[in-house]
Design a protein around this nucleic acid. Structure first.
Lengths: 253, 253
DNA sequence: GGTATTGGCTGACGCTACGTCAGCCGCAAG
DNA sequence: CTTGCGGCTGACGTAGCGTCAGCCAATACC
């Protein structure tokens, strides 16, 4: 049975010699024999293993996972399923990101020569649709549908008052924060309680602890939300989030 | 005008103190003043800049690009458009990858407890649809449609002979390669010429140099194609690809 | 006055999967 | 004897920080 040198294997499989040495170094693919100055010799079993490595790698698996699979530590189907899940998550993330970037571009092109200082105001158009998508994927269709139904059920007058109610809550929160109150302060928690009950009305259902904390996370993670709060007071989004977390821990399950 | 320490800025904006030091280190965001043991003090302009940094970063831009934009070296809309293009490319890559992984999982679940050695044979089902998608994105719908039309126009007998014709070409190529012929060897190029004319019949149109070389690339880059060739002779896909490249360079434009 | 706590600082390593030198050795052809 | 081809072993660089380790200063408590 003949053997092949690194350069030969490289030519046959398309990987570089450096890659082969790397795989050797991390123990993923060791040559059948090394001799005379450390020269590597690969046999057919090694070529086969290399093929398998390249196949799994092409599927996007990390080399550590590849090693685990090939050395029998991991069932290949299970590993691929987990990987597929990760891919789906990553793809959704990219979708959202892509939509956000496109929306931002439209904004910047709509207004002319916006100063950087005003970028934060620029995320209004498309916002609704985007957050609806975000919300559906976060909490499921049922919650969002219920929320839309609840809002439709309001009188127009009630509906127009929604932003003002939020603004009032935010303003009162900012005041307390100015006064040095922590997120678990009783007054702060009272306001968060109001907030919670208002969200409940908007959603048409009682948010679970998880959903409520998820909303808090959205407030800080999403640029448009975060900047809406920051217009009231710098860092308010994070403050509210912490208060919501505390409220959820203490009162929800 | 008051200033804020790293920890204060961290609490307000949600980044870590380490991140702020990092931004300082790479010159992306320098504190308004440092004094007394190197302690950093940030003012309002720095907070504003940080907000802008975080916004652009959340859109997926690299810190180097963010710096260029904020320092006026790059028009923000142009940068975002380029970024959007990259996102689209990346998303398509993920789509293809995701489809490939899903197909592989179905294969592995269809057959039971396949030994790793047989994985290479396992990518047949779904293969057609998958490569069709790949082909459409590589060469456009027109080419693929023409190809399907050309194949439909064949008699059933002709159609069943397609695999055998390919197999014969591959076998003859492998023989020449065994004999030490390079990719630009006349005999090899003659076989590739046959291959080219056969592809032309299949596609219903003359492949351009780019398309033909793209097909060669597909042969080596796609695991199922690559292993089809490797069943004939190890490394044959790459050999054929090089020969196709040489053929395209010499005879096509 | 000693000490535990809190914050802040500066290195420096780690992570992914190699690419890319730099520097050295051995073998064969001219 | 030189040149060239292969092969080898380090070691640094990559993006964006996380995570110690080790040290300093101010504050609070006993």
């Amino acid at each position: 049975m003949r053997t092949w040198s690194t350069a030969e294997v490289a030519r046959m499989t398309g990987v570089t010699a450096r890659t082969l040495r790397h795989y050797d170094a991390i123990g993923l693919l060791e040559p059948a024999a090394t001799g005379h100055g450390g020269i590597r010799h690969y046999g057919e079993p090694e070529l086969l293993r290399l093929q398998q490595i390249l196949l799994l790698k092409r599927l996007g698996l990390g080399l550590d996972v590849v090693a685990e699979i090939l050395d029998g530590g991991l069932a290949e189907v299970e590993a691929l399923k987990r990987h597929a899940d990760q891919l789906h998550v990553e793809r959704r993330r990219l979708d959202l990101l892509s939509a956000t970037v496109d929306a931002t571009i439209r904004q910047l092109e709509g207004g002319q020569e916006m100063a950087p200082e005003t970028w934060f105001d620029g995320l209004d158009a498309g916002k609704q649709a985007q957050y609806e998508a975000e919300a559906r994927s976060r909490w499921g269709d049922a919650v969002v549908d219920a929320g839309e139904e609840a809002i439709r059920a309001m009188t127009p007058e009630e509906r127009t008052r929604i932003p003002a109610i939020f603004a009032d809550l935010h303003r009162r929160l900012a005041e307390l924060r100015e006064g040095g109150a922590g997120a678990d302060n009783a007054g702060v928690q009272a306001i968060v309680g109001e907030h919670y009950r208002f969200i409940e009305r908007l959603w048409g259902t009682e948010p679970t602890a998880e959903a409520y904390k998820g909303l808090g996370a959205l407030y800080t993670e999403d640029p448009a939300f975060a900047t809406t709060f920051d217009e009231v007071a710098m860092g308010l989004a994070r403050y509210l989030r912490e208060a919501m977390d505390a409220y959820a821990e203490a009162n929800l399950d």
